[in-house]
Amino acid sequence: MIRNRNKKISFYTLLMPAFIIYLSIIIFPIVMSFGLSFTKWRHYQMVGVVGLENYVSILKDPSFQKSLWNNVQIMLISVLGQIPLGVILAYLLYRKWVRGAKFFEMMIFMPITISSVVVALLWNRVFSPVGIYTALVRSITHNPDYVVKIFESSRFAMIPILIVLLWQHTSLYMVIFLANLQRLPESVFEAAVIDGAKESTIIMKIVLPALANVIFTCSVLAISGSLKSFDLVFAMTGGGPVDYTSVMALYLYKQTFTFSNYGYGSAVSIIIVILSVGLISLSRGLYARAQRKYE
C-alpha cells in the first residue's frame, strides 16, 4: 500500500514539471487565443466582444489574401522543390557513385545551422548591387548597370525568397531521406544489381516505394511548416514592398504588435492553426486512400 502511494507520488513528481510548463505556455495560450479572437481591442484595452467580425474582415482583406497566396507559393516550393531535390541528392549520395560522398553531405547540410535571420541578410547582400548574383548576371549579359528589380514586382517578388528557402532547407530533406535509405537491407539492392536491373527500375521499384512513407511525412510537415514561415521573410523583406512578400504570420505580427489589435491578431493565428490541421488531415486522408488503391 505504502509502495503504491510512493509510486503515484513519484509518477507525478516526474511528470508534473514538464506538464505544467507545457500546459501554461502552449495549451492555455491557444485556448486564450481562441477566446481573444472574438474580441475587439483599442489602446491596449478590450472594448467588446464582436463575434465572428474579426474572421470576416480578415478573410475579406486583400492583404491577407495576398499573404495566404504567398504561403501557398512557399508550400509549393517545399513540396515540389525541396523534397524532390532532397530525394535526388540522397539517392546520389547513397549509391556512392562519387568519391567523398561524406564530404558532399557535410558541406551541403551546413546551412541547417545558420539562423534564418543571418540567411536572409546574407542573401539580401547576394541580390544587392554589390552582390554575387548581380555580378554574375552583369558579366553574362555584359550589362554593367544591371540591378535586381524583381523585388519590386507584385507578381514575382516572392521568387528570391523561394530560391533562398530552396537553398536553406533542401539539405534537411536530403539527410532525412539518406538516413531512411541507409536503413534498407543491402541484400535488396544486391539482388537487383545481380539480376541486372536497370537504374530506372531500381528507382521506381525499390527506392521510391521504400521512401514513400517518409516522403509523405515530410510533405505533411513541409505543408504545415510553410504556413508558419516568419523569420526568413521578416528579416529579408519585412513583407514589403507594400504586401508583395507578406505571409500570414507576418500579417499576424503586424496586427498584434504594430497595431496592438490583439483580437484581430488572435483570429489570424486561429486561422493558421485551422488551415494547418485541416491540410494535415486532408493529406492524411488522401494518402490513406491512395495506399488502399495500390494494395
Binding site: F11, L15, A18, F19, Y22, I25, I26, I27, F28, P29, I30, M32, S33, L36, S224, K228, F230, A249, L252, Y253, T256, F257, Y262, G265, S266, S269, I270, I272, V273, S276, V277, I280
Partner: peptide
C-alpha cells in the same frame, strides 16, 4: 498507469502548435 496514454497524446498535440499561434496571448500573459 492508464492515464499515461492521455498525457502522451496531449504532448504530441504540441507538435502542431508553433510560436506564432500563441505569441499574442503569451505576450499579454
Amino acid at each position: 498507469y492508464r492515464s499515461s496514454k492521455v498525457y502522451s497524446g496531449f504532448f504530441t498535440l504540441g507538435l502542431l502548435i508553433t510560436v506564432n499561434s500563441v505569441i499574442t496571448p503569451l505576450f499579454i500573459m
